[in-house]
């Protein structure tokens, strides 16, 4: 199945793109998609403890299941205001 990965702020800079399309084996979780991404870009690993995740623009968890066509976002600590 195919998912869209969204990355923001420093995570986007580290990856070199704010939006990636990845084919993953079903069933998959957010954690599995993150793991594959870290294998591509090891510098991302330091963010696992402090980032948030979202699936289809709703806050979610690393354990959440991901379906074909979903948008999975990885969010570093926020600094709005």
């Amino acid at each position: 199945m195919r998912v869209t990965v969204r990355l923001f702020a420093r995570l986007r800079d580290l990856t070199g793109s704010g939006e990636l399309v990845r084919d993953v084996t079903a069933p998959a979780t957010v954690q599995a998609i993150w793991g594959a991404l870290v294998a591509e870009v090891p510098a991302l690993a330091q963010y696992e403890k402090t980032m948030s995740v979202a699936v289809n623009a709703e806050y979610s968890t690393m354990a959440a299941a991901v379906s074909d066509g979903d948008e999975v976002a990885f969010l570093p600590p926020v600094s709005g205001g």
Binding site: F8, S52, L75, V78, S79
Partner: peptide
Amino acid sequence: TIERVKQIVPIWKH
């Protein structure tokens, strides 16, 4: 509202 914006809204300052 401003305290919560700084906690949970996905916006980043560069």
